[in-house]
Computed example of a mutant assay.
Amino acid sequence: MTTSRLLFPFLVSALLAAGAAVAADGLKKVDGLMVDGAGKTVYTFDKDVADSGKSACSGPCAKLWPPFPADAAPAAAPYSVVTRDDGTKQIAYKGKPLYLYSADQKPGDRTGDGFKDVWHVVKD
């Protein structure tokens, strides 16, 4: 058996894993919490209805809680993409749109957790 045949299953696995990372737009889990590629904490909003395909946070809300943007890659489960009222795309996790919090200044900050009892850090 040639080396390329031996490596093929590993290459396929690596490509699939890379595709999943792209679909999640740089999201990852750190110490049980979801963060973006820069290590900033990611949140959900209780007023968003899972799997509705909509965000309940716009205008001044979206300035304080910027939507987590989706890139051109299609999202793979458990991620999906929500089209916002302004036409921009936002990543959702398990059907709930994701947000950052403008007051979080550095990686690891999670000052928005529990904000007004409707904003929560994404945990798995």
Rank of each mutant, 00 (worst) to 15 (best):
S80F: 00
V122W: 02
R110K: 14
H120M: 07
R5C: 10
S58P: 00
T41M: 08
K123L: 05
V82M: 01
Y99A: 04
T3G: 08
V122G: 02
D48Y: 01
L27A: 06
V12K: 06
I91Q: 01
W65L: 14
A103V: 05
F8W: 10
M1P: 14
K106G: 12
D117P: 03
D109S: 10
K89D: 01
C57K: 01
A72I: 03
V82Q: 00
I91V: 14
G26D: 12
K63C: 02
C61H: 07
Y43N: 01
A23M: 01
F45Q: 02
G87A: 10
V81G: 01
K54Q: 11
G87L: 10
K123P: 02
V12Y: 02
R84D: 01
F10T: 12
T41G: 03
F115T: 09
A56V: 04
R5L: 14
G19Q: 11
D46Y: 04
S58R: 01
T88H: 14
S80D: 12
P67L: 09
K96F: 00
K96I: 02
D109A: 03
Y43Q: 03
P66K: 12
P67T: 13
G53S: 12
V81L: 09
T88K: 15
P9T: 11
A76C: 04
K116F: 10
D48C: 03
S80G: 15
A92E: 00
D113M: 09
G32V: 06
R84E: 02
A21C: 10
Y79H: 08
A92S: 07
